[in-house]
Amino acid sequence: MRSDLAFAVATLAVSIVYYWMAAGIQESRLADAIGPGGLPKTYAILLAGLSLVLIARSIGTPRSPTPDPRSPIPRVAGTLAIGIAYILLAPWLGYLVAIAGVILATTYYQGGSVNRRAAIVAVGGGIFFWLLFVVMMGIQQPQAW
């Protein structure tokens, strides 16, 4: 199948890069018989071998039916971007505001609409999580500068 071939080619590339990096691991005077790069190199060779097996199998099998043309990538990327934005903005906005923003934005990207109800749920959710983690459980969360 085409997806198997893509996966196998990607992992073959990973195994080559990983082996190259494993070969570059500095040796230590404390090194044992295997050394810090020993098992990583073995893993790389194993992965390369398995990738080649999958490539061989993929070439021999017929193509799978054409996938659904409706791509979910924009929504997936949007959801991911919300998490990245949280990492970047939480230290500036503080936990309560940032997590409320995550709830509002994710609601939209998961197919909901941004309206007054969504805003109330986001603010309420932010307060709930702040109470749960920070107040009740005493777990540190990002604070504004």
């Binding site: 709830i103 939209y108 998961q110 959710g125 983690f133």
Partner: peptide, 14 residues
């Protein structure tokens, strides 16, 4: 679903 997903995301990040 959108609300549940949003809360799960917030939960996971926290």
């Amino acid at each position: 679903k959108p609300y549940l997903m949003a809360f799960i995301y917030a939960f996971v990040l926290s």
